[in-house]
């Protein structure tokens, strides 16, 4: 391990959610881009104070869910009806899965047996949506990531207890060793620490 260190950014502490909120408004107005708040719970309205836009996750989930619906529809109609052969002219699909429709309770094998397929269509919609939520979320927030420069700070662990922290990263174009520190002091930060990471 070399002794070289890389500056990650300033980590500043605030007394409570209210101070953090107002500091965030100032930092946003000062034009910083690469910075973040670290809190033990989601603070209401902090997105607005930071200028974070709404998550796009619902759109991903909508399409994930639709995939589930269509999967269930196709799976069931191919294996249980003559819909693809009689109505769509795609009998080869039914050949493909080597099957014949199961006749139940003398109900026909046409597309109007559809209500019997709703339960599975519904369940797969939910299942696919839920998977999209989980994996979409992880993709959007870039986790799991087990190591991070902030973990080198002793103080940082307070975020998961009762700490309200702001970190302005050195990657930010507006970052300046003195100027950024002054700004943080001005907005009421306590215990400002320069976080450095081993290279």
């Amino acid at each position: 391990m070399s002794n070289l260190k890389r500056v990650h950014g300033y980590l500043a502490e605030f007394d409570n959610a209210q101070d953090l909120y107002h500091a965030a408004e100032h930092i946003r107005d000062a034009g910083y881009q690469r910075w973040d708040c670290h809190t033990p719970f989601p603070v209401h309205g902090l997105d607005g104070a930071m200028g974070v836009s709404r998550s796009k996750l619902p759109w991903l989930v909508f399409f994930g869910g639709m995939t589930g619906t269509i999967t269930a529809f196709v799976l069931q109609t191919i294996t249980q009806t003559n819909f693809w052969r009689d109505n769509m002219g795609m009998g080869f699909l039914q050949k493909l899965v080597e099957t014949y429709p199961t006749v139940v309770q003398s109900k026909p094998t046409g597309i109007w047996t559809l209500p019997a397929f709703f339960p599975v269509m519904f369940e797969l919609t939910i299942l696919f949506s839920a998977f999209t939520v989980l994996f979409g979320l992880l993709a959007l927030i870039g986790l799991p990531r087990l190591n991070h420069p902030l973990f080198t700070s002793k103080k940082f662990a307070k975020f998961s207890d009762d700490g309200f922290l702001i970190c302005i990263e050195a990657r930010d174009p507006k970052f300046a060793q003195q100027g950024t520190r002054d700004l943080l002091e001005k907005v009421g930060a306590k215990n400002i620490e320069l976080v450095e990471d081993d290279i």
Binding site: T39, P42, R145
Partner: peptide, 13 residues
Amino acid sequence: LGWRGSNRHWSHY
């Protein structure tokens, strides 16, 4: 998962 309580994460979360 390396959770950091980041507000940008909380927002999606």
